[in-house]
């Protein structure tokens, strides 16, 4: 590579170094939005590095499990991404995860990858967004107490389980 003169090589190193700095900035630990449930947790459902690199494959794999096989308690669920990563605004309402500056959108726009999940999927956690449609009265079943009635058979939804899980872990 004789054509690379010293000055060019130097410029290349400067540019490369700058890019590396930028990159480390982007993958620093501050990626999780403040005010979301995720900000208070140590790690996601898998190590952070694995999630960053592979979350799309995990989700893609598990969506097939859910849609085709009816397995809804998969390790990776989009509903749970939203549940954990949605940030509340000052009024206490959830901001959509694909809104400007929010968890999903900020990274996806940084790497310029189209975020198509939310063309169809709900963008905010359901139960506390205050839009009246979430978790209808009928679904407010007693879960943990031993008060199961026969005509209302026991069922644990995904987030109910997670909450219980957190309780047992002493959180």
């Amino acid at each position: 590579m004789g054509s690379l003169s010293g000055i060019r090589r130097f410029a290349g190193m400067v540019v490369g170094g700058a890019l590396m700095l930028l990159a480390t900035g982007a993958i620093s630990d501050s990626a999780v939005t403040k005010g979301s449930k995720a900000a208070g947790l140590d790690t996601c459902v898998a190590p952070t590095a694995a999630m960053r690199r592979n979350h799309m494959d995990y989700l893609k794999h598990d969506r097939r499990e859910t849609v085709h096989k009816g397995i809804r308690n998969t390790q990776y669920s989009l509903a749970e991404c939203v549940e954990c990563h949605a940030e509340k605004d000052s009024a206490g309402a959830y901001k959509p995860v694909n809104a400007d500056g929010q968890f999903c959108e900020s990274c996806h726009s940084y790497v310029a990858v189209n975020l198509t999940c939310f063309q169809c999927h709900r963008k905010t956690p359901e139960n506390m967004s205050g839009n009246g449609t979430a978790m209808r009265e009928g679904d407010q079943r007693q879960v943990f107490g031993l008060l199961q009635s026969v005509d209302q058979p026991l069922s644990l939804s995904r987030d109910e389980l997670t909450r219980l899980h957190a309780k047992i872990e002493g959180n």
Binding site: K37, D42, T43, V45, P47, T162, A166, N171
Partner: peptide
């Protein structure tokens, strides 16, 4: 949710 190890699934 508080999951501190790599295999929360188990």
């Amino acid at each position: 949710m508080s999951i501190n190890n790599d295999q929360p699934d188990l």
